[in-house]
Amino acid sequence: MDEILRVRDLRLATVDKVLVEGLSFTLSRGERFGLIGESGSGKSLTSLAITGLLPDAIRASGQITLAGEEVVGAPERRLVGLRGNAVATVFQEPLTALDPLMPLGRQIAQPVRRRLLRQGLPATRPDITREVHTLMDQVRLPDPDRLMRAYPHQVSGGQRQRVAIAMALACQPKLLIADEPTTALDVTTQAEIVTLLRSLVTDLGISLLFISHDLAVVGQVAERVMVMRDGHMIEAGPADTVLTRPRDSYTQSLVAAAARFDAALEGDA
């Protein structure tokens, strides 16, 4: 199977602190990969490095090959071409990830328009509106005519995250990165978004890099997982093996903690 993403010996550091070191993993086309780690373990930085959007203060070394192109050290011009085309990201907090002053319809329409132009397809207003409607349908947003004109603060958190997913899908990326896309949502909405993401990437045949600290959520989505701690890889393998029979003691403690949490929840009920 051919690869969409290869990360080799990735190292991310500020002038005085190493944040991620010796990270290597690959993702094949159509694969769903989970990145697990506690807060501050470097998950978000890794995803930013893949899209070439690291803060200025952080330097990357090693190799990141995305859809055959090298990302580390690439000029901005090349990266703009890769973003959207090869990769798109859904972020944790949908309220701040959407422009507060732009109607939702236009926020989805902009990447749609860019993609149509990129693909050499007609990009008139009706073409774009039709695509936006299709996308809103795909992410199961109700009442598209109303929502298109609404502003971010006028819709629910789950609906905002659906808009963010629609924006990412509007690019038709080969790889979708979801950085804790459900953390800001309530449990029911979380389950809906996870199911939606899973069915979308399967239907569209794109790869998914799913980042979370929640083992249960990752277990529902990913085929293969990697556990990170303090910027290092701890363990990697098929999701069912790592999440049920972890070899490393740190992963074991995570799994045990999650099990205790589940048990406590059930005891409550």
Partner: peptide, 20 residues
Amino acid sequence: DYIVAARVCGTSWPAIVLWH
């Protein structure tokens, strides 16, 4: 965040200045 979000789906700097 929405600037990062716009950049990550390939919006160029001039467009970001104009629209966001």
